[in-house]
Amino acid sequence: MIRILNTVGELTLYYVNQAGRMGIFLAFVVFNIIKLPYYKISHVIKQIYIIGTLSVFVIVFTGAFTGMVLALQGYNTLSKFGSEGLIGSVVALSLIRELGPVLAALMVTGRAGSAICAEIGIMRISEQIDALECMAIDPHKYIMAPKFIAALASVPLLTAVFNVVGIFGGYIVGVKLMGANEGAFFTSMYRDVEFADISMGFIKSVCFGLLIVWICAAKGYYVHMERSGGFGAEGVSRVTTSAVVLSSVSILVLDYIITSLLI
């Protein structure tokens, strides 16, 4: 009994501690981002390339197939009610409000989030972060700030790409393949998509971008404090897995929260 209480207490302390240090981490990074003139634009551009540009292919690919399958499913369902004309707005709304931000964020987590976590984790275990600190270079500023800015800029843009490609995919399948009316596809889309939908999608994508880079960077940064033991290659691989899982789960939870607040 005492053993159980002990373990529960230890676990609670560990997670409270982890939440606390991740919060402080975020505060430091945000503070360093606001202190504008001190980081270099070239670092930010490099990170935008790594996080954003290199993700474009994956985003285009998944976006196209998501839009295509939406049109396929939507056409079959809508045709039961004789309202195939709505296919355009169904595809666009599902993408813009929901699937675009969520799926793009999940893809970025898998592609760039894991890379961020592993990179920073390796820097930690090989004392490179200690070395930076001893040179009086703040890792929050030097390593983190460019990654945060890049993620905040890239994820919304990638989401936009996802949506556009998705709608195009939906058009190909819905109109060209299934034979829905081309005019109805676009008019229903123009009619039903409102600014509120787009702003909801945008808010989501910004929040997800922050969430991904925050969780993945902080997890890597604190790999040496992991409960499961943050040692060596295995420690980094474990923390990377857990960062990807945690940010994916958090994206879905946050998605529900934002939706319920904005709907």
């Binding site: 820097m123 090989s126 004392e127 490179q128 200690d130 070395a131 001893c134 040179m135 009086a136």
Partner: peptide
């Protein structure tokens, strides 16, 4: 701490070079 460390030059036992 940063001001103090600004005067430091450190060689770590395993060099801790930035490997990328």
């Amino acid at each position: 701490l940063k001001e103090i460390r600004a005067n430091f030059g450190v060689l770590f036992q395993h060099a801790a070079l930035f490997d990328s």
